[in-house]
Design a binder for these strands. Sequence first.
DNA 1: TATAATTTTCAATAAATACTGAAAATATTA
DNA 2: TAATATTTTCAGTATTTATTGAAAATTATA
Lengths: 189, 189
Amino acid sequence: MHTETTTSTDEQLRLAKDDFITQWGVIGNAWGISRTMAQIHALLMVSPEALSTDQIMEELQISRGNAHSNLRELVSWGVVKSVIKKGERKEFFASEKDVWKMFCTITRERKRREIDPALNVLIDCVQTTSEMDGPAVKEFHEQLVELCEFVQLASNVMDKVATAEESKALPLALNWLKSRKLTKVPEED
Amino acid sequence: MHTETTTSTDEQLRLAKDDFITQWGVIGNAWGISRTMAQIHALLMVSPEALSTDQIMEELQISRGNAHSNLRELVSWGVVKSVIKKGERKEFFASEKDVWKMFCTITRERKRREIDPALNVLIDCVQTTSEMDGPAVKEFHEQLVELCEFVQLASNVMDKVATAEESKALPLALNWLKSRKLTKVPEED
DNA sequence: TATAATTTTCAATAAATACTGAAAATATTA
DNA sequence: TAATATTTTCAGTATTTATTGAAAATTATA
């Protein structure tokens, strides 16, 4: 029996997944999502099985508190669901895997958390300034109305996306874009 | 001469602008933009004139270094432009005021900074896994391809938006959405 | 050229955010 | 019920990000 010189398929797969998880963490970080949260999400996206908190802690080498709070956050965003396995006492977690469903879910949440509050603030500002006069006020008011209408439109668009029940609806709706080859974009220096 | 009991129009306007600037800072913060950067942006959006670094420092009560680096950042995003006033030695700054142009500019930058790097990472992962075999690998590979195609589409959409030369093009293109009344969305509790 | 105005840098510090690990609370089984 | 498994909380700590303010570098004027 001689020493294995090639990496086994399982090992290769594990390494590729680890790489993806790490990279997704970096991406998430660049997008303003905490590295750990992005990593948990990535791990669950590429896990055929739902995972327990302990498995996630083990895999990503993070503490229980960290795993716990990030899992709750992912669940609150709707991209991860808690799964009960029969015969098992603990909670398991599984990610939504359909990219379009994920997109719709995140859009709905972002609208609720980020767009609606901004809209409310802007509407308040618009109303305050509509009761004042003078040319300078008018200019300011106009600017606010433009901003407001923009955010309103964003809000409407996001509503449409969020309620695109069938995950297949959007890809089709966006068919006006020809697909391109899978070619890397030149990197920054 | 009796004491003024009502606030002057100028004072009212100043207060309304201050309020907007503060609120925009809060919104920006919720969107992952630093409070100060959002405030500078807001200030410039509602200033009829371009402002100097000193005026911005004074207005927002921030340090020179802070004002400086955030202004550079805003300029690098393309939403603020440096303006040279004749007879004046210092640099002045003015914000783009057309909301749609702003949107196109930000979209272009986000694509370049956030989408393209992610796409490159995903393409690498897809390629790595395409050279491996086994059913588990195939499942992983499929998931990566879906993600990749999604990001690719996002990239294409953003390209279209970014190059929508005329700022009027997009509002028209998005006409499929009926406008709604300016009504506040119910707040969270 | 020297002088003054202005911009840029950056070490030090403050503030915000993320993470740990263990204790407390809760839920499950015997 | 008690014993055990599991989840949740949270004070303390580490890490990251934002800000200050003054010195250095740059640019413009006399």
